[in-house]
Design a protein around this nucleic acid. Structure first.
Lengths: 205, 205
DNA sequence: ACCTGAACACCGTTCAAGT
DNA sequence: ACCTGAACACCGTTCAAGT
C-alpha cells in the first residue's frame, strides 16, 4: 500500500500542499484558533509529527496559508480593476468590491491575514502584509491624479482612505459585526459601492 | 474569618474583577490566543477551576474583557466629540482620533473585540459589537446633516464610511500592518486627521 | 456558596528510532 | 530524506469532595 501503482499525490513532496489544503478546510470549519496541527496531519493522513518536515512551526503553516490569501486578494483586486477601462473612479470601486468579496468569501483566512494572531510573525516576515493590495489601490489613485479626476495630493495619502475604508468594511463583515446579507451578492456590491463613492466624493456639503 | 479586618480584595466577590485584571495583563503580555485560563487563575492566586465560578467558559471571560473594551471605546469617542464644539467636521475628526488612539493604546483588546476569535460568541451576544461606537459617529453625522455641512443622505450611509475608515485604520495599526510611528502621538493624530478629512471632503476633483 | 485536587481528553513540540 | 511512536509539559473542562 505504500508503493501503490496510482500516485495518490501524497508521500513525495506534495505533502506540503496537502497539509495546506487540509488546514484551509479545517480553518473554514472550526474558525481560526480552533485549528490544531495534529488534526491537520490526521486529515492529511500522516502522523502528527510529519508536518514538521515541511513547516517549522504551527505559526509557519498559518503564515503560509495567509500568504496564499494575500496573493489571491491582490490578484482579485488587480483583475477587477483591469476589467474596467471606464476611468479611475470605476476602477477604484471595482477593486473595492473585489476586496470585500474576497474577504466575505474567505472570511476565516481574512481574519487570519489581518487578525492579530499572526501579528508578530507577519511582522517578522515583513514582505507580505497586504502591501501588494495597497499598492494596487495606489496605482489606480495615481492614474486618477494624472487624469485630473483626483485631488493633487500624495498618492499614498489618498490611497490610505480607500484602503482603510475597504479594509474596515471587510473586517467588520468577516467578524460578523455588520448587519448585512452577505449571501446576497447584489446587496453586497451596492453597499461597497456606496462606501467607495462616498470615499471618492466625500460626505461634506 | 469571612469578615477579616484586612479585606485583601479577593475572596468575597472581587475575584471576578481580579480575574479580568489578570487576564488583561496577560493579554497584553502574551497577545490574544496566548492567554490561558489556568495562567489567569495562577496570577489571580486561585486554583485553576475557580474561574468557572464566575465565567462559564474561557470564551465568556474573553467576552467580558471585550465588553469592557467596547464601553471604553464608546466613552472615549463621545467624550472627545463632546469636548469639541467647533462643528460636526471637527467633532468627527476628534471622535476618529479618539477611536484610533484607543485602539493603539489597547491593541490586544482591540484585536479581541474585532478579531474573529470571538466572532460566533459576539454574534450570540449581539448586544455589544461596537454598536455604540457606530451610533456615536452617526449622531455627529446627523447633526452635521441638519446643520447643512454634510450631504443630505441616509445618516447610516454616511456614518458607515467614517466608521469603516477609522475601524480599518485602527485594525491595520493594531495588527502592525501599517508603517507608522504609533509611539508618536502627534504623528498619529495627524495621520488620522488626514484620513478623516479625506473622508469628509472626498478624494475626487 | 465558594474553592479545591484529581482526572480526562486534548494540544504543540522534541527526539530517538525506523526505512 | 522522510516518516513514525513515545514522551514532556502544557491546555480547557468536569466532577466529587472539602469548608
Amino acid at each position: 500500500m505504500p508503493n501503490d501503482s496510482s500516485k495518490d499525490g501524497y508521500h513525495h513532496g506534495d505533502l506540503r500542499n496537502a497539509l495546506l489544503s487540509a488546514a484551509e478546510g479545517l480553518l473554514v470549519q472550526h474558525g481560526p484558533g480552533g485549528l490544531s496541527l495534529r488534526e491537520v496531519a490526521r486529515v492529511a493522513g500522516v502522523s502528527h509529527t510529519a508536518p514538521y518536515r515541511h513547516f517549522s512551526d504551527k505559526a509557519a503553516l498559518l503564515q503560509a496559508l495567509a500568504r496564499r490569501g494575500f496573493e489571491r486578494l491582490h490578484a482579485a483586486m488587480t483583475d477587477a480593476a483591469a476589467g474596467v477601462p471606464h476611468g479611475p473612479e470605476q476602477q477604484l470601486i471595482a477593486a473595492g468590491i473585489a476586496c470585500v468579496r474576497h474577504a466575505v468569501n474567505h472570511a476565516e483566512i481574512t481574519q487570519l491575514m489581518f487578525g492579530g494572531t499572526l501579528a508578530s510573525t507577519v511582522d517578522a516576515a515583513g514582505d507580505m502584509s497586504g502591501r501588494d493590495a495597497f499598492a494596487a489601490l495606489q496605482t489606480i489613485i495615481e492614474s486618477g491624479i494624472s487624469a485630473g479626476v483626483f485631488r493633487q495630493r500624495e498618492p499614498r495619502e489618498l490611497a490610505l482612505v480607500a484602503w482603510t475604508s475597504m479594509h474596515g468594511l471587510a473586517m467588520l463583515m468577516t467578524a460578523g459585526l455588520l448587519e448585512v446579507d452577505t449571501g446576497n451578492p447584489a446587496a453586497l456590491d451596492q453597499l461597497v459601492g456606496s462606501v467607495a463613492s462616498n470615499v471618492i466624493y466625500g460626505i461634506a456639503r
